[in-house]
Measured scan of single mutants.
Amino acid sequence: MGFKLLSKLLVYLTASIMAIASPLAFSVDSSGEYPTVSEIPVGEVRLYQIADGVWSHIATQSFDGAVYPSNGLIVRDGDELLLIDTAWGAKNTAALLAEIEKQIGLPVTRAVSTHFHDDRVGGVDVLRAAGVATYASPSTRRLAEVEGNEIPTHSLEGLSSSGDAVRFGPVELFYPGAAHSTDNLIVYVPSASVLYGGCAIYELSRTSAGNVADADLAEWPTSIERIQQHYPEAQFVIPGHGLPGGLDLLKHTTNVVKAHTNRSVVE
């Protein structure tokens, strides 16, 4: 069995187990497998329904001669939608809004960016022009300005110390501490036991640490421990890039980060 097929099978099995364990909360999309990078042309966006009122959005972007996937989250909030992270750029984010209108038909009224990198804030200006209120932590807003990236308009308070959590509509926002970046936030959907790890969490097929220019490698494993301790009931975990899975993604990420750190020390 090929690795790609095995990865998709694991996603399907995880979703099936969740649907059985929580039949009222989960209505997993039966329309197909989780979209992969090879299936999404740059400039297009796919939506994948995880649970009743919960979707991931998947886009792709060219970077350094390669094409990478990027995940975000959409959560229903009454007759409105909360968006977590842009679709990595203005063109993708405009396509995301169009796809949401086509498939869901509810307005996106608020959006949260989970850290300051372009795959999370690139497209904020498109959201703002569409009347979406954009939010991020003060740290993310400051770092985005320093980096020359787009800056969300509103500040999220109460997320300055490791372990801080605040309720934001249908989700809980959690600051686990520094990891992929010093400002990275985690998003949890309690009604569906869905954990969105953003770039602080890796997919299972990833074996290298990737972009760690703004990471705190020493603190990252401790931050992941905080996530595990705060959300032990999480059933569906979405990484910032690639295929979702279960809580095993947290341990896998820790292993990859520690291996990278150990290699760096040896070198």
Rank of each mutant, 00 (worst) to 15 (best):
123 G>R: 02
122 G>L: 13
112 V>D: 03
234 A>I: 13
170 P>R: 14
91 K>D: 14
2 G>D: 09
261 T>L: 08
100 I>P: 00
252 H>N: 15
205 S>M: 14
19 A>K: 05
258 K>N: 07
100 I>L: 14
253 T>N: 00
42 V>G: 09
117 H>G: 00
220 W>P: 00
127 L>W: 02
94 A>F: 09
97 L>V: 04
107 P>G: 14
128 R>A: 12
97 L>G: 03
34 Y>H: 09
12 Y>T: 13
68 Y>T: 09
56 S>Q: 04
262 N>L: 06
249 L>P: 00
186 I>D: 00
106 L>N: 15
16 S>Y: 05
153 T>K: 07
145 E>K: 08
242 G>L: 02
225 E>Q: 15
139 S>A: 12
199 C>D: 03
131 G>C: 03
75 V>C: 03
5 L>E: 06
195 L>F: 03
221 P>G: 11
221 P>H: 15
176 P>E: 01
212 V>D: 08
184 N>F: 02
60 T>P: 06
231 Y>W: 11
48 Y>I: 08
92 N>I: 04
7 S>D: 10
9 L>V: 07
88 W>A: 01
81 L>C: 04
159 L>E: 01
38 S>V: 12
246 G>P: 05
80 E>F: 15
15 A>T: 04
109 T>P: 14
210 G>I: 12
139 S>G: 09
191 S>L: 13
158 G>P: 15
129 A>F: 04
170 P>F: 05
122 G>A: 06
41 P>L: 10
9 L>A: 07
194 V>F: 04
207 T>N: 15
79 D>S: 15
242 G>H: 03
104 I>Y: 04
220 W>Q: 00
208 S>N: 05
33 E>W: 11
39 E>Q: 05
128 R>M: 06
255 N>Q: 10
104 I>R: 00
34 Y>C: 13
147 E>S: 08
177 G>Q: 02
164 D>N: 14
153 T>S: 10
258 K>V: 13
64 D>L: 06
30 S>F: 06
13 L>R: 07
182 T>W: 09
58 I>F: 05
85 D>E: 15
27 S>C: 09
71 N>P: 01
27 S>Q: 05
257 V>L: 15
90 A>P: 10
38 S>K: 08
220 W>T: 01
68 Y>N: 08
150 E>R: 04
135 Y>A: 04
152 P>L: 04
84 I>Y: 03
164 D>G: 12
209 A>S: 13
201 I>H: 02
126 V>C: 06
223 S>I: 10
194 V>C: 00
144 A>Y: 03
86 T>C: 15
210 G>H: 05
72 G>L: 00
130 A>P: 04
55 W>M: 04
146 V>W: 12
40 I>D: 15
156 L>D: 02
6 L>D: 14
265 V>P: 06
255 N>Y: 04
239 P>T: 13
16 S>L: 09
26 F>D: 10
93 T>L: 00
258 K>I: 13
100 I>A: 13
264 S>R: 12
120 R>Q: 04
198 G>E: 02
230 H>K: 06
145 E>C: 11
46 R>I: 07
95 A>N: 10
40 I>W: 08
201 I>P: 02
249 L>M: 07
234 A>W: 02
86 T>P: 02
169 G>C: 03
56 S>I: 04
220 W>C: 03
12 Y>Q: 08
2 G>C: 04
220 W>Y: 04
26 F>E: 04
217 L>W: 08
126 V>H: 04
63 F>Q: 09
55 W>K: 00
128 R>S: 10
133 A>N: 04
188 Y>N: 12
108 V>F: 03
91 K>P: 15
262 N>F: 05
145 E>D: 10
218 A>K: 05
76 R>V: 07
44 E>P: 04
127 L>T: 01
255 N>S: 06
243 L>Q: 15
57 H>R: 02
24 L>S: 11
112 V>K: 02
214 D>E: 12
95 A>G: 11
40 I>C: 11
206 R>W: 12
28 V>F: 14
105 G>L: 12
59 A>W: 02
230 H>D: 13
107 P>A: 15
127 L>E: 01
261 T>M: 09
174 F>N: 04
175 Y>R: 02
23 P>V: 07
185 L>S: 02
196 Y>P: 01
238 I>M: 15
118 D>C: 08
103 Q>K: 14
146 V>P: 10
42 V>K: 13
160 S>I: 15
7 S>M: 05
68 Y>L: 06
125 D>I: 10
195 L>N: 00
38 S>M: 09
117 H>E: 00
205 S>F: 14
100 I>Y: 02
87 A>L: 02
78 G>K: 12
57 H>Y: 03
199 C>Y: 03
1 M>Q: 03
37 V>H: 05
22 S>V: 10
99 E>N: 15
187 V>Y: 01
74 I>R: 01
58 I>A: 07
5 L>P: 12
177 G>P: 00
206 R>E: 15
150 E>N: 12
51 A>I: 13
22 S>Y: 05
48 Y>K: 05
88 W>T: 00
222 T>C: 06
171 V>D: 02
108 V>W: 02
18 M>C: 04
97 L>A: 03
83 L>C: 03
56 S>L: 07
39 E>N: 15
187 V>H: 01
